[in-house]
């Protein structure tokens, strides 16, 4: 039983399909992401196929389908960061973590998200790890930054 999900869905027992996006937002807010179970349960109360819900949810950037990692990495891809080379930083992050934007590493340590603008254009290109900002990031800095957050102490020591 998933009480968080049930509490949300209980409020929407009589909802129609036009309530889909608000429900998706509410579930993601509470659970951090949209799981298969959540999507199936939403489909049941709205009488919508899961393929349709997944289609709608993937149309928007705001929904994610895997839980956030212990360390949530956000990379800014706004105009200023783009001009300063954030595309290469994103590449480096994806390589370093071996995941794509929107995914979470298998060990649950890191998740990666692309955001439009963090409002720190003066620091471009900028990434944030659990709210901690790193300014003027170069692709070659990524390895050190990520390692400093790894739980494995040996790797952390190496980074220092």
């Amino acid at each position: 039983m998933d009480t968080i999900l049930d509490t949300i869905l209980d409020k929407h027992r009589n909802a129609r399909r036009d309530a889909l996006i608000p429900i998706l937002q509410e579930v993601q807010e509470a659970k951090g992401f949209l799981s298969r179970e959540s999507v199936a349960a939403i489909g049941e109360i709205l009488n919508l196929p899961t393929s349709k819900i997944y289609g709608v949810a993937t149309f928007y950037n705001q929904f994610r389908f895997s839980p956030l990692g212990a360390q949530h990495v956000q990379i800014c891809r706004g105009t200023a960061c783009h001009v300063k080379g954030s595309a290469a930083v994103l590449d480096a992050l994806e390589r370093e973590l071996d995941i794509e934007a929107g995914q979470t590493t298998r060990d649950g340590q890191f998740s990666l998200e692309v955001v439009a603008c963090i409002g720190a254009c003066g620091l471009a290109p900028v990434i944030s790890v659990n709210g901690e900002f790193h300014a003027g990031v170069l692709p070659e800095d990524v390895n050190n930054i990520i390692n400093s957050y790894r739980v494995d102490e040996e790797v952390q020591a190496d980074a220092k």
Partner: peptide
Amino acid sequence: VSAIDFINRGSEATIGPAF
């Protein structure tokens, strides 16, 4: 049946089952 639908948007759009 609705086994498949559009996934993603724009140049990344594709068609497939849920998830």
